[in-house]
Amino acid sequence: MTGAVPSPDLPADVARAAAVGDAMIRAPKTLPPTATVGEVRRFFEDDHVHAALVVDDGRLLAVVERADLAESIPPERSAAGIGRLEGRTVAPDAALVPVWDRMRDEGRRRLAVVDERGRCLGLLCLKRSGRGFCSDDDVEDRRREREGR
Score class of each variant (00 low, 15 high):
A80V: 06
E71V: 11
L60N: 06
E71S: 09
G81E: 13
A52Y: 03
D56P: 00
A79H: 01
D68M: 11
D57L: 07
G58C: 09
E71K: 05
S72Q: 07
V64N: 12
A80S: 13
E65L: 10
E76C: 00
P74N: 08
R77H: 08
I73V: 15
E71R: 08
A67W: 10
R66L: 12
R59G: 00
R77I: 00
L69M: 08
G81S: 13
D68N: 14
P74E: 14
E76K: 06
P74W: 10
V54K: 01
S72I: 13
S78V: 04
E76P: 00
E71M: 01
D68T: 11
S72H: 09
A51S: 11
R59F: 03
R66H: 11
V64C: 13
D57Q: 14
D56L: 03
V55H: 03
L61T: 05
L61E: 13
D56E: 15
A80W: 02
A80Y: 02
G58K: 12
R77D: 08
G58T: 11
A70W: 03
P74F: 11
S72W: 09
E76L: 02
A80Q: 08
A79W: 01
A52G: 06
G81V: 07
P75D: 15
A70K: 09
G58P: 10
D56S: 12
V63P: 11
A62M: 04
R59A: 05
I73H: 06
R66M: 08
V63Y: 10
E71F: 03
A67Y: 10
I73W: 05
P75Q: 05
A52H: 03
V64Q: 10
L61Q: 13
P74S: 12
D57T: 10
A70S: 12
R59Y: 04
R59C: 00
D56G: 00
R59W: 01
P74A: 14
A79V: 05
S78P: 09
S72M: 09
A52F: 05
E71T: 08
D68F: 13
D56Y: 01
L60W: 05
V55D: 10
S78R: 15
V63M: 11
E76M: 01
S78I: 03
L61P: 03
G58H: 11
L61A: 07
I73M: 07
V55R: 06
A51H: 03
A80C: 04
